[in-house]
């Protein structure tokens, strides 16, 4: 392989990994507050369809992205009320959200299947994009990719270096103790869940506004689920999520790479690769039971009812 091809592959890996990065960043914040939201796929699909419809009907791409983020938050709010206010099981509620979002997105988008839009144009960042190799891999993308870079940096700082991050982690590690020292546990969890929803929304918008760019039923193809695995893979650390997203991105374009290299494997078999890779990665990461227990937020998935507190 010549270096030109490698650069092209890595460029595509970053682009393919970007929706995973967005949604996994949202989910990791949510999980750090102790909430496991399995509704990612549903929120992402709703973001994709609403973002597409908004951009298609107004011609304004930025408006599409905002609409998608808003839609993602609204979807996550349904989850938040059921889980936080009514103490519903997080797994079942998340599944309901995914089933609901899958249906609703197909329902809403039925009349728009196959329509295309222009998509965000690539912007080469001056100077940075001139760096050999790196410039073409990282700095010749569209604006949403740069936004994902910025978002990763901001979240890394907020989670690791600020009081907000400390509050978030306190709620996720031990909600009872956090409550006792006066942290509004439910409020923190509401905000974390809705942030996760907004990020799932923008992730969906990336699919329908940049990656494809069009609306197709079920176009996210399990990325919402892969993102959940990605959070485990990254041991709930922001920096590793970015790395992991691009590795998963690479895994999901491997079939194109292998075909390009002249391998004659059925595309349907190669399409399994990202899912098989996800299983293998999870087995490797989780095998160390003790380590995973140490890294996962301790109250993850467990309900918290302030009324039970003395």
């Amino acid at each position: 392989m010549d270096s030109d091809l490698i650069v092209q592959i890595l460029f595509a890996a970053v682009k393919t990994g970007t929706p995973l990065l967005f949604i996994a960043l949202g989910e990791v914040i949510c999980e750090k507050s102790g909430i496991l939201n399995l509704g990612q796929e549903g929120m992402m699909l709703m973001g994709a369809v609403v973002g597409f419809l908004a951009a298609y009907s107004t011609g304004n791409m930025g408006f599409g992205v905002l609409a998608a983020m808003l839609m993602g938050s609204i979807m996550s709010l349904i989850f938040a009320v059921l889980v936080l206010q009514l103490g519903a099981n997080q797994v079942a509620t998340g599944l309901a959200l995914t089933i609901f979002g899958t249906g609703l997105s197909a329902f809403v988008g039925a009349g728009f299947v196959g329509q295309t839009i222009q998509g965000f144009p690539p912007i080469a960042i001056p100077f940075l994009s001139d760096i050999p190799y790196i410039g073409r891999i990282l700095f010749s993308h569209d604006i949403l990719v740069y936004f994902s870079f910025g978002m990763t940096a901001v979240l890394f700082y907020v989670v690791n270096k600020t009081r907000i991050g400390l509050t978030l982690k306190a709620v996720g590690e031990n909600p009872n103790a956090a409550n006792a020292i006066g942290i509004p546990v439910l409020k923190v969890r509401y905000l974390a869940i809705m942030f996760g929803g907004a990020m799932a929304g923008i992730s969906g918008a990336y699919m329908s506004l940049v990656y494809t760019p069009m609306w197709v039923e079920n176009m996210t193809a399990g990325r919402g689920w892969i993102a959940l695995a990605l959070v485990v893979f990254a041991s709930w650390r922001i920096g590793r999520i970015m790395l992991g997203a691009y590795l998963f991105g690479l895994a999901s374009i491997m079939h194109l790479v292998l075909q390009g290299m002249g391998w004659s494997i059925s595309p349907n078999l190669l399409a399994m690769l990202p899912y098989v890779a996800t299983v293998i990665v999870m087995v490797i990461i989780s095998a160390d039971h003790f380590k995973e227990k140490l890294l996962a937020p301790r109250s993850l998935g467990k309900p918290f009812d302030p009324r039970n507190m003395a």
Binding site: A221, A229, S266, N268, L269, A271, M272, V279, A287, H289
Partner: peptide, 27 residues
């Protein structure tokens, strides 16, 4: 054996089964 998350592995196996089936009817 490996403590991997059952929700996620069973979901992944749904997708793998789907593509295996599609591969089989094409091949």
């Amino acid at each position: 054996r490996f403590n991997s998350n059952l929700i996620l592995t069973t979901i992944m196996f749904n997708y793998i089964a789907l593509y295996l089936l599609i591969w089989a009817v094409h091949g």
